[in-house]
Simulated scan of single mutants.
Amino acid sequence: MKKILKKLYNKTSVGRILIQKVIDLNVFYWTRIAADQRVIKRVYKESFGRPIDLENPKTLNEKINWLKLNDRTSLHTMCADKYAVRAYIEKNIGSEYLVPLLIHTQDPTKITKKNLPDSPCIIKTNHDSGGGYFVINKEEIDIFKIQSDLKIRLEKNYAHNITREWQYKNIPPLIIVESLLQTKEGAIPMDYKLHCFNGKVRMIQVDIGRGTKDHYRNWYSIDWKREPYKWSSKKENGKYTDPANFEVPAPKTLTKMIELSKVLAKPFCYVRVDWYDVDGKLYFGELTFHHDSGFAPILPSEWDLALGSELLLAKTQSQ
């Protein structure tokens, strides 16, 4: 049957149109109509090859997906908002950890070469997950393409996809421009992602060479010893962000990162707190509530279970 459909799609224009309509309807159903729990069950089984247990979750990935469905508060929405979270950071640890904000607007046409700073910056939206547009020299960018891309991003609701991360649903879309953090050598600083269980830092993720074919991901304990598992993401080239065969030195700000992460993580059952260390100066990155949407296997698999046993699911109330 697949061969017949493929032949119809590739060889006839009518077949291509009809099959594409079916594909579009299927995507629409799974992203906009199907119940969250049904979507999560389907995607989890595709990712792990086994059903998810949402009644009695045991592994870390099962518990992350359970939290998606059962731990929904206005504070999650605020902290997933890359603009609104700034108020949370300022209130709890101080504005000195915020990356300087240069522009915030709902209008893509306000992002012009005239309005952008002469210094390096990053342009992004506040309501989705993913990177932004790095601007080193504003005279070299295609500003009209960026405006067009931003318009498309503003119209999308990140909650309407197969990850079913509810916290993005009610974020008012916004464009923000921040200073681009760079080291004295002009390099993008290393980012450190502290995974917090029940208000305490459990492990630290270090991504090396992000955005390149040599993107590695090392895992460390809070006393900077290599963890015995990997929790990798798929790269654009089809390979994975597996750990490197070399070590990354602990940042000088490690103790401060851990202390501040505990403060920020206190209201949440599970959260990942991201930081940048720029030549010893610490900057907050973002808060992430469902690492890789709970669909990335932890290997060896017994560590998914072991880490899951350490995360206690508190009684929560959805809104």
Score class of each variant (00 low, 15 high):
Lys2Ile: 01
Lys3Ala: 02
Asn10Lys: 13
Asn10Ile: 01
Ile17Arg: 00
Gln20Glu: 02
Leu25Tyr: 04
Phe28Pro: 00
Phe28Asp: 10
Thr31Gln: 05
Thr31Val: 00
Ile33Asn: 01
Ala35Trp: 03
Ser47Gly: 03
Asn61Trp: 04
Leu75Asp: 10
Thr77Trp: 04
Thr77Val: 15
Thr77His: 07
Cys79Thr: 14
Lys91Thr: 11
Lys91Leu: 09
Asn92Thr: 10
Ser95Cys: 03
Ser95Leu: 01
Val99Asp: 01
Leu101Asp: 10
Pro108Glu: 05
Lys114Cys: 00
Asn115Gln: 13
Pro117Glu: 05
Asp118Arg: 11
Ser119Leu: 11
Pro120Leu: 10
Ile122Trp: 03
Ile122Lys: 07
Thr125Phe: 03
Asn126Met: 08
Ser129Phe: 08
Ser129Tyr: 08
Lys145Tyr: 13
Ile146Gly: 02
Leu150Asn: 07
Ile152Asp: 11
Arg153Val: 08
Leu154Phe: 10
Leu154Ser: 07
Glu155Val: 01
Tyr158Glu: 12
Ala159Ile: 00
Ile162Lys: 11
Trp166Ile: 11
Trp166Cys: 09
Tyr168Gln: 00
Pro173Met: 04
Val177Lys: 02
Leu181Tyr: 11
Thr183Pro: 14
Thr183Ser: 14
Pro189Asp: 11
Met190Thr: 12
Asp191Pro: 06
Phe197Glu: 01
Asp207Leu: 03
Asp214Ala: 10
Tyr216Gly: 01
Arg217Gly: 04
Arg217Tyr: 04
Tyr220Asn: 09
Ile222Trp: 01
Trp224Tyr: 13
Arg226Ser: 14
Pro228Met: 12
Lys234Asn: 08
Lys234Tyr: 05
Gly238Cys: 08
Val248Asn: 09
Ala250Cys: 13
Lys266His: 04
Pro267Trp: 07
Asp277Glu: 10
Leu282Ser: 09
Phe284Ala: 03
Glu286Pro: 11
Phe289Asn: 09
His291Met: 05
Asp292Tyr: 06
Ser293Asp: 06
Phe295Thr: 11
Ile298Val: 15
Ile298Tyr: 02
Leu307Ile: 06
Ser309Leu: 14
Leu311Ile: 09
Leu312Gln: 14
Ser318Cys: 13
